[in-house]
Amino acid sequence: MHNAIEVKDLTKAFGTTIAVDRISFSVQVGEIFGFLGPNGAGKTTTTRMLTGVIPPDGGTATILSHDIGREPVLVKQGFGVVPETSNAYADLTAWQNLMLMGELYGLEHTRAAQRASVLLATLGLLERKDQKVQAYSKGMKQRLILAMALLHKPPLLFLDEPTSGLDVQSAQMILSLLGDLNRNGTTIFLTTHNMEEANRLCHRVGIIRSGKIVAIDAPEKLKAAIDRVHRIEVSFDREMPGEALGRLPGVASAHRTGDKWQITAENSDAVIRSLVKFSQEHSATIVTLNTLAPSLDDVFLRLTQDVSP
């Protein structure tokens, strides 16, 4: 599988402040890549460099096999952008905004109109297509921006906080559409603060801190990597001997809290097997069994805590 985005030593400074410091990463075709980081970490600057809005001071970004610095128009023709702030023309209607995008991407009018109708219907905006955007709610504006980004059926989509501040209905509609797009082959570069969103959607996430990439991996691998000791919570339908529980293979410690046992272990799989066997040997039934793995929030906080306010 080849890469949709290939970034090497990308650097950007504003005056004496280095916003992005020689970062390198790649995003595979067909992947949803989450780009996470605290405020001011360099996420938006990176996205702006990748989308050709601002030039990098150093390094290269190859997008869809073209260098963004050398062939910006060819690169931009291949992706769509959904920025954090709605930037549709407020004095134009939704339809006029979409037709403008069609012309800017070189689409024939008939094709652009057909595609615009489908997208507006999918995003629940068809009935208000002739209304000026200034009368739209934030959710409607964001859905329109997504439609504008998708008009030319790009194989790659950049999204910067696409659901930030949206109502649940709009957010779910956008996330559902992103899932569908990815299943149909669209590569997605998603900048977000929403860990739950990243955890749910992304195949891999990259975490940036103070302009440097501090981790890149699948969310589950990152969670596993930050905490070698796993926590397991188990409860039985009868009293169990605590000392015996603590001596089970792989169990590091066992503490009782209420009607449950909190167990720590390095290998959760082995401990769960031991617990099942242990309950059978004591003719007990396991009432609940939860693995308390670290969340992506934990990963994010652990990796970014040094600079968080």
Binding site: V73, K76, Q77, L104, G106
Partner: peptide, 14 residues
């Protein structure tokens, strides 16, 4: 101001 210039800058236009 309206950020629409950023929209144009990210479109395939010079």
């Amino acid at each position: 101001q309206a950020k629409t210039l950023e929209r144009l800058a990210s479109c395939p236009v010079t």
